[in-house]
Design a protein around this nucleic acid. Structure first.
Lengths: 139, 139
DNA sequence: AATTATATGCGAATAATTTGCATTAGTCAA
DNA sequence: TTGACTAATGCAAATTATTCGCATATAATT
């Protein structure tokens, strides 16, 4: 059918309108969304899925590694589609979240494995600071 | 009085038994605690603080930069005292959280500042994998 | 088209977090 | 050290977030 359906099917999940909606909302967003954002965007797609269903779908997707749960400084979670491995730069003034694809901490990981005996499978890395446009504003 | 009182006072907060208890619990723990963990440890100290108070204190401390909110893979938050800057290695089998003090990503930060124009103030970095002792167990 | 198991909707339960407000208790200055 | 002042707390209740049970609907499979 389409790329979202395929992704869902490939994880052994049934393809349903609600699942397609949730996945496409996350894939089409250029930044992570919180649960409220997901629900309202699904509604905008004119897909009416109960919020219990959306919660369930999010957990499904996390289990199946289609979606990743993130937390920045606020007391709530954000979700994003798992595309490639990347990190985030979160502007503390405007809240904009940018992707950082460059990552060269493999060397650090190897160091940890050697000194701690801890086998690193993955990592999460977020940067906090001020984005380009906020730097030009007088705070 | 003591080091915890001083830390609290230095942030312009009043020194109260509940605040001393929460801060000492976090400082004395060698790994981050969730809200339940904090509450039960405060109770063990025989300080009876209402849970609403503890929630409020945590938010105070985060505002004042005495405490940091963390999230790993689970759907809940962890809190730790802000000592020095460090990262975590979270074992996906036993859940143990280890500190990683070594951090050499300054170079990466400079790279981001140059290419993105994003001014990095701080970052968070967590490693997920398998700790030494879990590696020897048959899964 | 029938079968079967999974997914959903709905309402209700539960858990997590916050709030209002009266009371208590730190802090500071006289 | 004692007020006076303001911030912090306790308590109960409200709000918000999340989960659950179960009947029904709907994908997938034949």
């Amino acid at each position: 059918m389409n790329i979202f359906s395929d992704a869902i099917r490939s994880k052994g999940l049934r393809v349903t309108p609600a699942r397609i909606a949730v996945l496409s909302v996350l894939e089409d967003s250029e930044h992570p969304l919180d649960i409220t954002g997901i629900i309202s965007k699904v509604i905008k797609l004119k897909v009416d899925a109960d919020q219990a269903t959306i919660y369930r779908i999010i957990e499904n997707f996390i289990d199946k590694d289609l979606v990743k749960r993130l937390q920045f400084r606020e007391k709530k979670f954000y979700y994003e589609a798992k595309r490639y491995d990347h990190h985030h730069a979160i502007c503390e003034k405007c809240g904009k979240i940018d992707d950082i694809s460059n990552c060269s901490i493999d060397r650090v990981e190897r160091e940890i494995e050697r000194t701690k005996g801890f086998k690193v499978k993955s990592h999460s890395l977020e940067y906090f600071g001020t984005c380009k446009s906020c730097q030009t504003l007088i705070s």
